[in-house]
Design a protein around this nucleic acid. Sequence first.
RNA 1: GGGGGUGUAGCUCAGUUGGUUAGAGCGAUCGCCUGUCACGCGAUAGGUCGCGGGUUCGAGUCCCGUCACUCCCGCCA
Length: 594
Amino acid sequence: MNKYRTHNCAELTKKNKDQSIILSGWINKKRDHGNLLFIDLRDNYGLTQCVIDKSNKFFKDLEKIQLESVIKIKGTVVERSKETINSDLKTGEIEINIVSFELLGTCKELPMPIFSDQDYAEEIRLKYRFLDLRRKKIHENIILRSNVISFIRNKMQELDFLEFQTPILTSSSPEGARDFLVPSRLNPGKFYALPQAPQQFKQLVMVSGFDKYFQIAPCFRDEDARADRSPGEFYQLDLEMSFVEQEDIFNVVEKLMVSLFKKFSSKKIINENFPRISYEDSMLKYGTDKPDLRNPLSISDLTNIFTREDVKFDIFKKLVSKGSKVRSILTKKTKDKPRSFFDNIDKWAKEEGASGLAYFTFEKDKQITAKGPVGKFFSEESLKEIMKITSAEVGDSIFFACGKINEVEKISSLARDKIAKDLNLINENEFSFCWIIDYPMFEKDQITNKIKFSHNPFSMPQGDIKNIDFKNPLNIKAYQYDIVCNGVELSSGAIRNHIPELMYKLFSVAGYDKKEVDEKFKGMINALSYGAPPHGGIAPGIDRIVMLLANEKNIREVTMFPMNQNAQDLMMNAPSEISENQLKELNLSLKKKK
RNA sequence: GGGGGUGUAGCUCAGUUGGUUAGAGCGAUCGCCUGUCACGCGAUAGGUCGCGGGUUCGAGUCCCGUCACUCCCGCCA
């Protein structure tokens, strides 16, 4: 017991009847009846109703105190009469008869209401984040986040993982995202970089013989924000294991995710053994490598249909003859949907920057026909072929898009989500996890046409190491995998390449010579040549996991002190200008603004 | 870097075809009210309609520019 409180605002019940107690907290709400005043006192734990009437000398003072002021109340616990019990409150069976009070912290007029479910402007919320965080919903989200992190820590320790910290000031790496840079005072003209992830360090931890590592790791990437992507910084459950194959990583992560999601959500997990989908299949069937498997719709390739003589849809035929692809989405039993349903989706696609979506519905009178604006261009034979490819039946409809492969993948993926949403096909009470596997090691840069790493340059290529087909690098697959839940990419990982000679070869395919690799990845390559164990790992994103568990669409709702979209902290005023002196010490000068 | 949305009182929002003095709810201040739990009732204060320019007899409303916030594309191995 201390001078501020004997109990918190959630723990008093009728068992405490007649006790003298002290509570401290914020004034959540006042209900002033003139000669009788109710005060809802709030702290982290809950609410307790306190009462005072005009016979008490403190009445007048208490009546005037601003909401959200912090006060200490001395009083007695009183059982409420039956008709005044509030069953919504944990403490609803009792109230506090106020004997005296003390003002601990005054409060100015509030820039926004605390006790309200109303949404208000992000700018104000971020500027007054300390007030925003008092609100129930976000307060609970942040507590959830804390509990999730504790749970993960315990679980990882149970599984014999060791938690280590790795440096925050490290070196810039040429691959991947833009680095945040920190000038070095002691080394003029040189810069540290904040880690985009502790990738190289965790591999070094394995080379150092620690076997299993994890860290709730801050990661820094200087890229533009999205609703599910904080600008600047975010957290990963970074983990790495020695002497493992892909399956070993999958086992650990599946166990962790299933126990975590079961513990913190009542939603159903569809497959506790997460299905594995190859990158190639995922791109074809879902148009993306982060499919929402709650969505039953799937995409088919109809490109060949548009090479047939008996299909007269010339716009698509012309595009196909020039190398474009046609992808379709089938919707079941939609023949009675109004014209507006189809046209809205076409209109939506145009707004998304596509050339629109063609559609028709399969009908049968004497023969199979296609009903819809472009239906007349298809012969019965071609329609039968389409039905075979897409497993369509009479009464189903089909949407299709034509374009360059990556364009058509993108729009069909978006359309798959959009149509499912319009048809209400997604069960919001499920979690559907999957692994995306067999990522290609390399890809062609769209602009420069050069071969580059498609994901992590340190991933192990698949197949017999002695017989890797370096002449056709685009065919090389990697032991590289992503975990996806409800269309949200939670993490990516890989079995690492621990063989320096192989590393040099792969880097040379991406246009780095030996000298360059030695320069840029000195620590890494050097370490791998002193007896490195085969190893691999993964790094699930903490923020996104909490988003899924809290059922939030925006990452700021699960981040205590987030920055806005322009990577500014409106509360702390970061980034800010620095003094001439600081610049001088760092050996920096700023370009003059034009 | 590009596209969309939003911007009116401290907060959330309404504001018709361009037309008199720009409204409501919450909050604030003052008054009344002894059983509320979104307490109730009455009154008062509170506005550079984001900012700048233009069209017009007249602009919150129309046009051009610009800024801020947000969503998306690019980007994020």
